[in-house]
């Protein structure tokens, strides 16, 4: 573990793994999308629009999975002060925001035929919206604090505070929702889902997870290279000023 934690070794590992990961992602998506459009049945109530689910649910799953990844990286930043953890955190935030956004948009597109409006203040949607806002806040924090290490530690702390707060937010939004509108909206019945729908859903969820892993590794690699470039140019500026003086 510690061997790969060295950025140079990590870059070598990424170069080795990335082609395979990309290939796997493409294959999974090909299979998943084929199943989504040609194998999975249309819903007897919702018709063809149910197929949005195969994008919506994986995005929702990833919006939480990425937060978990970010929280692990945050521990890495605070406990071991590892630059790789900083890079992993920074790279995950925009990806998390992206998948959460996909989740919101697909939910909205799905909602239009279902509920007759683009947006409802449904407990589920509202919680995801707040998660989206937290991702945006984290990105703003990364952008505003210039010093990389400091930004990483601030983001790490906020991420961990979020770990404690997200269940509270979820709970309060559920409470608020039941208070203001009795449950009338469509709820996806968890275990009652039919196998012909479950299998494509799982394949798509796996594909999306691998897509995230691929993108995340790429983004971490870019972040490491970006930092090296910055350090080199700083060093260059230093030696230049020394030769001048």
């Amino acid at each position: 573990m510690l061997k790969f934690a060295n950025p140079t070794n990590f870059l070598r590992l990424v170069a080795l793994v990335l082609p395979w990961l990309t290939g796997l992602t493409l294959v999974l998506f090909a299979v998943g999308l084929y199943m989504t459009f040609f194998i999975a049945p249309a819903d007897y109530q919702q018709g063809e629009s149910v197929r949005i689910m195969y994008l919506h649910v994986p995005a929702a799953w990833l919006s939480l999975f990425i937060y978990g990844t970010m929280a692990m990286a945050a521990l890495g930043t605070l406990v071991w002060r590892h630059p790789l953890a900083d890079a992993a955190q920074k790279a995950a935030a925009p990806l998390g925001a992206g998948f959460t956004f996909i989740c919101l948009v697909t939910g909205s597109l799905w909602g239009k035929p279902m509920w007759g409006t683009w947006w409802v203040w449904d407990a589920r949607l509202t919680s995801v919206l707040i998660l989206f806002l937290i991702y945006l806040g984290l990105m703003a924090l990364w952008q505003t604090i210039e010093d990389m290490g400091r930004a990483a530690r601030a983001a790490a702390l906020l991420t961990l505070v979020g770990v404690i707060n997200l269940p509270i937010i979820k709970f309060s939004v559920d409470w608020w929702n039941t208070l203001h509108q009795p449950a009338s909206v469509f709820r996806m019945g968890g275990p009652t889902i039919h196998v012909s729908m479950l299998v494509p859903l799982l394949v798509m969820a796996l594909a999306a997870t691998f897509l995230f892993l691929t993108l995340h590794l790429m983004a971490i690699r870019n972040e490491i290279l970006h930092r090296r470039l910055r350090r080199l140019s700083m060093l260059a500026a230093q030696t230049e000023s020394e030769t001048l003086s």
Binding site: I130, L133, I134, L136, G137, A140, L141, T144, I145, D147, R150, A154, L157, L158, V161, G162, N165, I168, I169, F171, S172, V173
Partner: peptide, 23 residues
Amino acid sequence: ALTVSLRRGGLLLAILILPFSIP
């Protein structure tokens, strides 16, 4: 505390903390 090093941290503070104050 998170924005202590920023010159104009007020707006960022609100963006960071308002979602957490929803409950």
